[in-house]
Design a protein around this nucleic acid. Structure first.
Lengths: 202, 202
DNA sequence: AAATTAACTTGAACATCGTTCAATTATGCC
DNA sequence: GGCATAATTGAACGATGTTCAAGTTAATTT
């Protein structure tokens, strides 16, 4: 009952996101414009608006893909049961990912959502997945029945690491310290583990 | 030998920044445009370019003022010599300032400096001032000769708090936790102090 | 096979943005 | 009064996100 498109909607979506990533790689994230993406995928601007509500949604879809990639990278980290070693291994994968996808990663955090607009449920779920990974690593430090303390610790650690990541990705870590981001991240984890150990001793 | 301006360059600068703040308050930071600021200060766009190199420099000047305001707020925190109480008091002032200047504060961290361009020296100095405040509060926890550990601890704590602040200001803290930002910040400090205590016990 | 229908695609047009700069205005000086 | 000079203007330019009437193409219907 209709014309068969040269590409399905899913194909167009993938082409658009791939085109956007190409623009990011070759021209920087500032040049991710509707026209640039459209031109690179061989379509017109109008077609992009047929797939996405607008540029913001395209970038949101890009960020979702990036978040998935992060999770995939993290989920390959081994869990030996030794929190310190496991966390350090996880961190290294995180930092490798950020280093390899710096511009994409930075974009994830400057999506300026229209002031007090809740992110969609699927986004929260993607974030929760990452928390679950952290939780599994910290598990050995907590006795059964201390689940509340565990989740609280996971959140605090994640927030602290968020400080490291945002400063690094924004190119502003060197304002604070001259240490490489790997050392800062490891120091942060160590400080945290020391704090956790001290609290359990109370 | 020249025309006397209706307003001195310094006055124009102040008027522009005040106009920008008015725009932020009434129309949001997205609407801080050259035309909006110029109209609000009763001048044309050309005049703005006579004062600032461009919009980016205007926003940078705005951010500098915000950073000064932050320092002023923080420097009023009392130093009693008890790190825990002092840090909590400092945090409360920090959080009050961020709450009262949410949009301005957020703007400080999304100035997308053209990829690996160093900020000016005066900016680094303003940041260093804040570190000095933190350092004075943590001082009692360190023996003479441990200055390196002190500055390292200050940096780590500041980075961790940066995670709290950015998530909160970006309206994304609730993705991580339902706790109010004050509780998160205090928990973070407590975790840090516990970690410091444990390390000194080594 | 022709006509119809509907999805797909286009790109000109619009409002707005940052930025530039020739022209205008208004003052101090001789 | 006339001149030089600084301050100020606002039209103009290129680029942006977005809209939408018009055109195109294939499946369906007659």
């Amino acid at each position: 009952m209709a014309r068969t498109a040269k590409h399905s909607k899913q194909e167009l979506r993938d082409m658009a996101l791939a085109a956007a990533r190409a623009v990011i790689a070759e021209e920087g994230s500032r040049n991710v414009t509707v026209r640039a993406v459209a031109a690179r995928m061989g379509y017109s601007v109008g077609t992009l608006y047929n797939i996405f509500e607008g540029l913001e949604e395209l970038i949101a879809a890009l960020n979702a893909e990036t978040l998935d990639g992060l999770y995939d990278a993290l989920s390959q980290a081994p869990i030996t049961g030794k929190p310190e070693a496991d966390l350090h291994a996880l961190l290294d994968r995180y930092l490798d990912f950020v280093a390899a996808n710096r511009r994409e990663w930075t974009m994830m955090f400057d999506e300026r959502l229209p002031e007090a607009k809740a992110p969609p449920a699927w986004y929260l779920e993607k974030v929760a997945r990452v928390f679950t990974l952290l939780g599994r690593m910290l598990q050995p430090l907590f006795a059964p029945g201390e689940e509340a303390d565990l989740t609280s610790a996971v959140r605090l650690l994640w927030i602290a690491m968020h400080g490291v990541w945002t400063l690094d990705a924004g190119g502003k870590l060197f304002i604070v310290t001259n240490d490489p981001v790997e050392k800062v991240a490891h120091d942060m984890v160590d400080m945290f583990l020391a704090g956790l150990g001290a609290r359990k001793g109370d």
